[in-house]
Nucleic acid binder design. Structure first.
Lengths: 202, 202
DNA sequence: ACGGATAAGTCGGATAAACGACACATTCCG
DNA sequence: CGGAATGTGTCGTTTATCCGACTTATCCGT
């Protein structure tokens, strides 16, 4: 199917919007494909020619929301600087706030799914940034991936923690505690990365 | 083409909304079919399978707006009472206000078209009400139509005049001058209508 | 007045969406 | 327990929309 076809774009957008609407009034688990089709005023069969099931739809929506939340300056960065890191932290926090405030959480399943997706998006973003810096020895790619995984998880859990404590909408303390922690560990690794390949076994 | 088909409903709604949007930023005459199609993100050929041209589209939009503006109580009335007449006057005024405030008026052509449509909608509405009153002799239908035409035109021009003078948003004076005038002439006719058929030639 | 550019309509073939039907799984209730 | 009701996923056919191409009409500048 042609992703550029105006009919396809319209239908997919309709489905996404209907799903978001439903998420505001019902729990994820209790939303049926029939509900989505009815809300979007499309045929139920049409849904299946675009998404495998509602989990795939949730995945796409989560991804899209992430990309919309994350400023381009962060996604397109060529170096993992303090500034970029701060952007990542703030965007992640904003994302979780939006998500958890607009969606009903009947079961924890949706939270789990979204958590996983968010972490992988963060990780991918960071990994891309790290691999863009020219001076990384090809043999150190694996280390860069590790760093991305760790950092992604760190940022996400920091944002999540800050949200659940949530007696305050200020983000100052969130950044002030998370940023040094991450950049410290990251700089450690970056030093090694820019050098020659690390010897195995050390 | 099946008017109930969800695709048809969606497409027509898209076209109408796009047209309304365009009317807010461009003059009617300078809007091309291409503009409409581009704005609605539909194929240009698709437009032609729903509307003959932009004049037909304007006609439909005007009619729809009229029906939305006119309260059901007026449209469904079974007698042409003072109360109903007041509703017609007020709704007509509200309609003209909305229309002339939201649409750009580059040339006068659109105003002419809308004027005509509005008058005919008003006339039709009044005619329907008059013909609904059971005690009208069938032979007097023609007279009822005349009354409807006169009254429709009167109400519309009163509303229009009130709008163009327009130093004031109050509608009191509008109703106070128009209503007695109309009901006087109308009651005159209604008396004759409810009697036997009028003799021809008098 | 003439030629180029842009819009108006129209047409045929390709494709996405609608629709109804089907078999199967799940849930719910007497 | 059993059966009724509801949701899932898929299929074949019909229909609306897309798309590109074409002709005709209208507008505009040199």
């Amino acid at each position: 199917m042609n992703r550029e076809d105006p009919r396809v774009l319209r239908t997919r957008r309709l489905i996404r919007e209907s799903f978001r609407t439903l998420l505001r009034s019902k729990g994820f688990e209790s939303i049926t494909i029939k509900d989505i089709a009815r809300q979007a005023v499309i045929n139920r069969a049409t849904f299946y020619s675009h998404y495998e099931d509602k989990y795939a739809l949730l995945d796409e929506i989560t991804e899209q929301a992430f990309l919309e939340t994350m400023p381009e300056q962060a996604r397109e960065a060529r170096q993992f600087t303090d500034e970029v890191c701060e952007l990542l932290i703030l965007a992640t926090y904003r994302y979780t706030v939006d998500f958890y405030r607009t969606c009903r959480m009947d079961s924890k399943s949706i939270a789990t799914l979204v958590d996983r997706k968010m972490k992988s998006m963060l990780q991918e973003t960071i990994e891309t940034i790290l691999l863009r810096t020219e001076d990384i020895a090809p043999a150190n790619r694996r280390r860069a991936k590790m760093a991305a995984a760790i950092t992604g998880a760190a940022i996400y859990s920091a944002a999540y923690e800050w949200l659940t404590i949530g007696d305050d909408d200020s983000t100052g303390p969130l950044v002030e505690t998370t940023l040094p922690y991450i950049m410290n560990g990251m700089n450690e690794l970056l030093l090694e990365l820019s050098g020659p390949a690390i010897k195995t076994g050390r």
